[in-house]
Computed example of a mutant assay.
Amino acid sequence: MKLSVIVPCYNEENNVVPFYNAVMKELKNIDLEILFINDGSRDQTFNKLKSLFLKDNEHVRIVDFSRNFGKEAALLAGLKESKGDFVSIIDADLQQNPKYIIDMLKILENNPDYDCVAAYQNVRKEGKILTFFKDCFYKLINRMTEIEIVRSASDFRTLKRCMVDAILSLPEQCRFSKGIFSWVGFNTYYMPYTVEERASGESKWSFWKLFRYAIDGIVAFSTTPLVISSIIGIILCFVSFIFIAIIVIKTLCFGDPVAGFPTLATIILLFSGLQLFFIGVLGQYLAKTYTESKHRPVYIVKNILEKESFKDE
Rank of each mutant, 00 (worst) to 15 (best):
S4K: 00
S4E: 02
V5Q: 00
C9L: 00
Y10D: 02
N14S: 10
N15V: 06
N15Y: 04
P18V: 08
Y20S: 12
V23K: 02
M24Y: 02
E26Y: 12
E26D: 10
L27D: 10
I30A: 10
D31A: 11
E33H: 07
F36K: 01
I37D: 02
G40V: 10
S41F: 04
R42A: 08
Q44R: 13
K48S: 10
K50D: 08
L54M: 08
K55A: 08
D56E: 06
D56A: 04
N57C: 09
H59Q: 02
H59E: 00
V60A: 01
R61K: 13
D64T: 08
D64C: 13
E72T: 02
E72Y: 02
E72D: 14
A74I: 01
E81D: 14
S82K: 00
D85M: 03
V87E: 00
I89S: 01
A92K: 05
P98E: 06
Y100V: 06
Y100K: 09
I102H: 01
I102N: 15
L105Q: 06
L108V: 06
N110C: 05
N111Q: 07
V117A: 00
Y120M: 03
N122G: 13
V123S: 10
E126H: 08
K128S: 09
I129T: 15
F133I: 11
C136E: 08
F137I: 04
Y138L: 12
K139M: 10
I141D: 02
M144H: 01
I147R: 02
D155C: 05
K160M: 07
C162V: 12
M163S: 09
V164N: 01
I167C: 05
L170S: 11
P171C: 05
Q173W: 04
C174L: 03
G179D: 03
F181H: 06
F186P: 03
F186R: 10
Y193I: 10
E197A: 11
A199Y: 15
A199Q: 13
G201H: 09
K204I: 14
W205S: 13
F207N: 12
F207T: 14
K209A: 09
F211L: 12
I215P: 06
I218D: 08
V219Y: 07
V219P: 06
A220R: 13
A220N: 08
A220G: 04
F221E: 04
S222Y: 06
L226E: 07
S230R: 13
V239P: 02
V239T: 09
F241I: 15
I244G: 00
A245N: 07
I249G: 01
K250R: 14
L252I: 15
C253T: 02
F254I: 08
P257V: 13
A259C: 03
A259V: 04
G260N: 09
G260R: 05
F261C: 03
P262I: 00
T263I: 12
I268H: 07
I268S: 12
L269M: 12
Q275A: 11
F278Q: 12
G280L: 05
Y285I: 01
K288Y: 13
S293G: 00
K294H: 07
H295L: 08
R296F: 05
R296Q: 11
P297Y: 03
V298P: 01
Y299H: 03
I300A: 05
I300Q: 09
V301F: 04
K302Q: 14
N303L: 14
I304V: 15
K307D: 13
K307R: 13
K307H: 09
E308W: 10
E308P: 02
D312F: 10
D312K: 11
D312G: 07
